[in-house]
Structure formats: C-alpha cells, structure tokens
C-alpha cells in the first residue's frame, strides 16, 4: 500500500515504530503483564497501548501469547502480575462480564455462537441492561415487552447489515463458519462496544466471504469504534490494519504500520521465518505432528 494515500489526519503519523511506544490517544494501556503456565511464560508484555479509533492488528507465530493476552485483557484469565486500564479506568481484578459492560467486547477464535438458540435470539442476548433479564421482573411480560421490541428492532437492523436477515429464525448451529463469525461480530455490536476485540476473525471463513468480512471490520472503524484483532492472514493484516503489533514468545517484539512491520527484516527472520508465505497455523500443526511422531518412534 503506497504511503501517500494515508490521510494527513492519520492519528498515528509520527509515532515511532518501537515496541511499547506511547500513542497520542490510547484507549487501552497495559504495563508489565505476565502470565505463566507451569514453567512457560506465555505472556510477558512490558508496555502496550492501543490507539483509539483505528484498527490494530496483533500478529505473531502460534504460541506467541496473543490469545492469552486477549484473555487477560478481557478478564477471562487472571495475570500473575501487571496492570491495565481501559479509558483511564483500571481493569485489574474486574470480571469479564464487567469488562464487556464497560465497552470492551471480544469474540473468540473458535466461534461461540449459541447453537441451539435462533439467530435472532443470539442477537437479542447481546443487548445490555435488559429488564427482562432480572429474575423478579422476568415472569411479568408487561415489564419488559416494550424494551424487547426495541432490542429486536436494533437486532434486525444489524442482521440486515451483516446479511444474516434471511437466517433470522434458523438455529445458529446451522450456520456456516463464516456466517458464525458474522453473527458473533453482529452480536457483539448489540453491546455497543467502544473497543471490539476480534480473535482470528478470518479463521475458517471461505474466501468468498472474506472480502465482505473485511468490509464489515472496516465499517466498525468508520463508525468510530476501535478494533483490535488477532490474525494469521497476512493479506488481511496488510489490507485493513492501521497499526500492527508483533508478539513472539509472550513479548511484544515490534510495532509499526503494516508496511514498516512487513519490511522489518528482524520480524521476518525471527518470527515469520522462511515460511513467510505459508499459513502459520498449518505449519505449526505439521511441525507438532512430526515432533510427536519422532518422540513416539524414539520410545519404540
């Protein structure tokens, strides 16, 4: 992507491409976050800032700690050390559901649609502050039916936008992989988040759907939301991200615009290796298999 097309108002213009660099308007700031599994330090991040209103990609080889970092930031896992804040408010020891209520919503690597609920029910669940979700008012329909109608209206708009309106009454379990990703994204919008965190939004999506998914991610930024996503698909990273953070072995090893990072020889050598163009997920599984086979042969 030629650099001269970057708008002059680029908020990240002039930010140095050094790991842990300060951003002009950071929505999410974390320092000295570590998480250990057994002897392995899965995450060891000294400092990280996510710029508001842009799309930031988090890349790195398998086992680099990207998903673990997601889990820690969103309260799905507790770090051993570290502090982090969202919109200036500390998120330490804040449970996952409260993190979401504050406007930081995530999706999952393996999509978590609620298979035996219909698509529209999946969407309705996303709305926050529902009176009908309180035990004592739940039995009395009159108390919540008005709110339910407006929630449904909003859900239908989002379904139309994500081209899922035809599937409205289907069980979510009957959707294809790509449609599930779309539904999960649409559902998280029901929470109306400021920061939306997508864990591998392209994994398992068929190529025909990829372009429209890319469009949807960009549209999130265009309506003023901040996007942070984990991805292995380098094309997607190059296409839509404004900023890229590279992780390896739990640490942040590089940051910068997509072009800067892609051309960073250190990044290519150390973390993408000679397999730059192959899909990293596949690669790692093959390697693992070979390792296991070798081990078993040795034992025999």
């Amino acid at each position: 992507m030629p650099a001269d097309t970057t708008p002059t108002t680029d908020p990240l213009a002039g930010v140095a491409n050094t790991p842990g660099v300060k951003k002009p308007d950071a929505i999410l700031v974390g320092s000295s976050i570590t998480r250990q599994f057994g002897g392995l330090k899965a995450v060891d991040v000294e400092h990280v800032e996510i710029q508001r209103g842009v799309i930031t990609a988090l890349i790195g080889p398998n086992g680099a700690g990207k998903t673990t970092l997601f889990n820690l930031l969103t309260g799905f896992d507790a770090p051993d050390t570290g502090e982090w804040s969202f919109n200036g408010q500390s998120l330490q020891k804040v449970p996952a559901y409260k993190v979401a209520r504050r406007g930081m919503v995530r999706t999952f690597q393996l999509t978590k649609v609620l298979s035996r609920l219909t698509v529209i029910e999946n969407m309705r669940l996303g709305a926050t502050g529902q009176r009908g979700e309180r035990f004592w008012s739940a039995p009395f329909r009159a108390l919540w039916s008005g709110q339910e109608d407006s929630i449904t209206e909003r859900a239908d708009e989002l379904l139309a936008r994500f081209k899922l309106d035809a599937k409205r009454e289907d069980f979510a379990g009957s959707l294809s992989g790509g449609q599930r990703k779309l539904l999960e994204m649409a559902r998280s919008l029901m929470v109306d988040p400021e920061l939306i965190m997508l864990d591998e939004p392209m994994a398992g999506v068929n190529p025909a759907l990829k372009q429209s998914l890319l469009g949807h991610v960009k549209s999130l930024r265009d309506e003023g939301r901040t996007v942070l996503f984990v991805e292995h698909d380098m094309d997607m990273v190059r296409d839509i991200s404004d900023w890229v953070i590279v992780m390896a072995q739990g640490k942040i090893v590089a940051e910068g615009t997509p072009d800067q990072v892609m051309s960073d020889q250190a990044v290519i050598d150390a973390y993408l290796g000679a397999h730059h163009d192959t899909d990293i997920t596949e690669l790692d599984e093959t390697e693992l298999e070979q390792a296991t086979e070798a081990e078993l042969d040795q034992e025999a």
Binding site: Y97, V105, F108, S188
Partner: peptide
C-alpha cells in the same frame, strides 16, 4: 450452550 460467550456479552 456456552457460558464464556454469555460472559463476553456482559452478563454475570
């Protein structure tokens, strides 16, 4: 169906 999904949507 999936309690983590529900948690991620802000439900206790």
């Amino acid at each position: 169906e999936d309690e983590d999904a529900v948690r991620s949507l802000g439900k206790n």
